[in-house]
Structure formats: structure tokens, C-alpha cells
Nucleic acid binder design. Structure first.
Length: 456
DNA sequence: CTAGGGTTAG
């Protein structure tokens, strides 16, 4: 009895230390506990799994599973749920699905949470139909859906472009007595803002206020990002101000939203000012904050400072992710250091990141912008995977080089593949053809574009 | 302990 109680105390202690991200300290407490005869249990290890996944890396979290085995403690459904959801958070979706199988093979029965997470994964993989099947299984099967089941559905539908279905589900559930939580509203507001349904977003926000909910940090960040997307910079910065006065800027979320928006629109000086605010407020940078900072350095051509931060990330015990590396590769390309960019791309490969289309697209754009259009074409032909960005970049750069006929050819092949291409880029090709006297070709291209639009 | 907001390319 005494030992059991002590383990409980140990768990509470470790959970609270983990919450403040002091994993080393948590490990020491664990060791001290064992020395005093207080043995960790499955909850202790589950807490550690979650903390390592959250603050270090998925692999570090997964490693705790081995430590449990060595300690003779069997993982339970929560251990696996934590890992599956951590993998999903880090976009390692095939890992999530494999873990789900691993859990079944070990004879651990999934609970409704496992299925919620599985649905979330399928939505993130862009498979709303499969997610919907799981939803039906839950609703019609042996499990009782939890409020989270509905939240995952609403969020997933929004993310996959089915905002109307999400709204319909939301209204239906309300009629059946479902009490929406703040996060239900947050998911809907985010979905509506992203699909530029500002009127509907405002109505939901109003309803939310009328129910007596106070917007939380996430609501604020969502609405703030929306302001920047609509070029309402003043309003966006006002929201940041309000968040600061309410104490909602205890982490990097709000700052990173603002800084990224400012960088995108070339407001580098203002971005630097916000970074200073963030640093003077003593916000400990997490990986995304570091990535944002590195991006800001790169935009100012301070590659050395950016690379220094790379070391700092590792000193902090964090692991650079695909964003970090892509930002560096983009920075190197913009500085004209293609050799360095290629080396970094290879380095990513040795780290096990696999093929990274965003980084290769950066290289493609870099070649084009530096005037090496033939290099760009060679790279383009060698690429096995392409997306709408790839085509837009190449067409855009061909136009810049005055090679409108090639641009037109690539544009048509892009439309044939069913990829979308920016209207402005299409316009550039047509105008370019006309400018060099190829009026007929311009006409033909226009009608081809119109045909494709009808067919899709 | 698990869902919702922030970071990369045109």
C-alpha cells in the first residue's frame, strides 16, 4: 500500500517536472526513486514517452518502450496511443499506422482514443473517406464515441476542404445535445478562415462569445493569422498586443505566426522587432521558433548566423526537422551557394529524411533566379516527383528568361497532369508569347487552358 | 497521457 502510494507520488512529481521540459531532472528523480525503493510503473513510463515525444523527438519517445521492456513493465493502450499520436503530430503517418498494427500484434486492445487518433491520421494523410469509415464503425459499433471523436471529425473535415460538411455535422450534433468545447469552435474557425469564409467565421466567433466562452490563445492565434492572410496587418498586430496583455504569449506560437507573416511580405525590419519582443519576454525558443529565426536570418543573407543557430538547436537537445533543413537549403540557394545547398540536401538524406520535394523545388527556383535556366531544365527533367510548385517555378523562370515557347509547352504538360498553376504565371506566358509576336500560339494556349478548366 | 493554433518552395 505504501509502495503504491509512493509510486503515485513519484508519477505526479515526474509529470510536473516533464511539463517544465526538464527531462534530465525527471530521469534523476526516477533514479532517486528506484534507489529509495519506489518503483516506476506503466504510468511513469507513459509520462516519459509523451514528454520525450513532445520535447525531444519521436524516436526518443519510442526508445522509452525498450526501457519499459527492460524494466519488465508491459506497455498499455495509453503507451501506444501516445506514440501513435506523437508520430501523427510529427507527420510520420506511416509510422502511426505501423504502431497501430504493432499494438494489435502485441494483443493490446485499442480503445476509442486509438480510433480517434487513427481517424486523425487518415485525415492528415488526405484520406477522408477512410476516416469516415472509422467514424461510422465507432458510431455504429461497440464503442461509444467520445467528444473527441466529434472534434477529430470536425477538424479533419475542415482540413480536407469539407468545411460545409463539418458545419453540417456540427449543427446536427448540437441538435442532439452535443456541447461544443472551445476547441470545437477553434477547429471550425480555423477551417472557415483558411477557406476564406470570413463571414461564416465571424458568425461562429460571435456564437462562441454569446455562449460565454472566452477566446483562448489558440482562438487568438487563429484569428490573427487570418488577419495577416487578408493583409490586415494593423489588426493582426493589435491582436498580438492584446494577447500579450492577456498573458497568452507564454510560448512562441503567436510570435512565430506574426514573424512568418511579416517575412512573407518582406517586412524584415518589423519581423526583427517582434523577435526582439519575443526574446525580451524571455520566451524559450522551441524548434519552430528556431526555424522561424533561421528563416529570418536567411532572408537577410546572414547564413553564418543561421548555421550557428543550427548548432544551438542541437546543444539544446532538440533535433532539426525537415523545416529546418529546407529553410537552410532555401537560404543557401538564395545566396547563390548551390554547391552548399546540394551538400545539405545530401546531408538530409544521410540523416534519413528521404526525398524532400520542397527542398528540390527550392533548388529549381534558385537556379532559375540566378539565371541558370538550363541547369533548372536539367534538374526538372531528372525529377521523378513533381507538384504544382515545381511547374509554377519552372514556367515562371522560363518566362523570366524570355523562353516563352518552352514555358508554354511546360504549362500545357502541367495542366495535362491535372496540377493547378498560378493565374499570374499563366498570364505571364500568354503575355510573353504576344510580346514576341507569337499571337497565334498565345490564342492556342488560351483555348487549351479553357478546355482543361472545363474538363476538370 | 492522448484532439485545436505557429515554421519551408511558386
Amino acid at each position: 500500500m505504501v509502495a503504491k502510494l509512493s509510486t503515485k507520488v513519484l508519477n505526479i512529481c515526474i509529470a510536473s517536472i516533464c511539463k517544465s521540459k526538464q527531462l534530465g531532472k525527471a530521469e534523476n528523480v526516477l533514479i532517486d526513486g528506484i534507489r529509495l525503493g519506489v518503483l516506476p510503473d506503466v504510468v511513469t513510463y507513459n509520462t516519459l514517452i509523451d514528454a520525450y515525444c513532445r520535447f525531444v523527438s519521436f524516436d526518443a519517445g519510442y526508445a522509452v518502450l525498450y526501457r519499459m521492456n527492460e524494466a519488465g513493465i508491459n506497455p498499455d493502450v495509453i503507451s501506444y496511443n501516445s506514440l501513435i499520436s506523437a508520430a501523427a503530430r510529427k507527420c510520420l503517418l506511416s509510422k502511426s499506422l505501423n504502431l497501430f498494427d504493432e499494438m494489435l500484434q502485441r494483443g493490446i486492445h485499442p480503445d476509442v482514443w486509438s480510433y480517434n487518433i487513427l481517424m486523425d491520421c487518415l485525415f492528415k494523410l488526405g484520406k477522408p473517406d477512410e476516416a469516415n469509415r472509422i467514424f461510422m464503425d465507432i458510431v455504429l459499433g461497440e464503442f461509444r464515441p467520445s467528444p473527441a471523436t466529434y472534434n477529430v471529425m470536425i477538424n479533419g473535415l475542415c482540413k480536407n476542404g469539407y468545411v460545409n460538411n463539418a458545419l453540417a455535422l456540427f449543427r446536427n450534433l448540437q441538435r442532439h445535445g452535443f456541447i461544443p468545447q472551445i476547441l470545437t469552435y477553434n477547429a471550425l474557425i480555423n477551417g472557415l478562415c483558411k477557406s476564406r469564409r470570413m463571414g461564416a467565421a465571424r458568425r461562429i466567433l460571435k456564437e462562441f462569445g454569446e455562449l460565454g466562452y472566452e477566446p483562448n490563445a489558440i482562438t487568438y492565434t487563429t484569428v490573427m493569422k487570418c488577419c495577416f492572410q487578408c493583409s490586415k496587418f494593423e489588426e493582426g498586430l493589435e491582436i498580438l498586443h492584446e494577447m500579450r496583455s492577456k498573458g497568452y504569449t507564454f510560448d512562441g506560437f503567436a510570435y512565430c505566426t506574426v514573424i512568418a507573416a511579416l517575412i512573407k511580405t518582406g517586412r524584415i525590419q518589423e519581423a526583427n522587432e517582434i523577435i526582439e519582443q519575443m526574446q525580451s519576454n524571455g520566451i524559450e525558443p522551441d524548434l519552430v521558433s528556431y526555424n522561424t529565426l533561421i528563416n529570418l536570418y536567411c532572408r537577410q543573407g546572414k547564413l553564418d548566423d543561421a548555421l550557428k543557430l543550427l548548432d544551438e538547436i542541437e546543444k539544446e537537445g532538440l533535433e532539426c526537422d525537415k523545416y529546418t533543413h529546407t529553410i537552410i537549403i532555401h537560404g543557401l540557394c538564395m545566396a547563390g551557394n548551390f554547391l552548399g545547398a546540394q551538400q545539405h540536401l545530401n546531408y538530409m538524406n544521410t540523416l534519413g529524411f528521404g526525398f524532400n520535394l520542397v527542398a528540390v523545388n527550392c533548388m529549381l527556383d534558385g537556379f532559375g533566379k540566378a539565371g541558370h535556366i538550363d541547369h533548372a531544365l536539367k534538374l526538372f527533367e531528372a525529377m521523378e516527383v513533381k507538384d504544382s510548385f515545381t511547374y509554377t517555378i519552372l514556367v515562371h523562370n522560363l518566362c523570366r528568361a524570355g523562353r516563352f515557347l518552352s514555358a508554354s509547352k511546360i504549362l500545357v504538360s502541367c495542366l495535362k497532369c491535372g496540377f493547378k498553376i498560378l493565374r499570374a504565371t499563366q498570364r505571364a506566358v500568354i503575355d510573353g508569347l504576344i510580346s514576341i509576336g507569337y499571337t497565334n500560339e498565345a490564342k492556342k494556349l488560351k483555348s487549351k487552358i479553357r478546355m482543361v478548366r472545363l474538363l476538370h
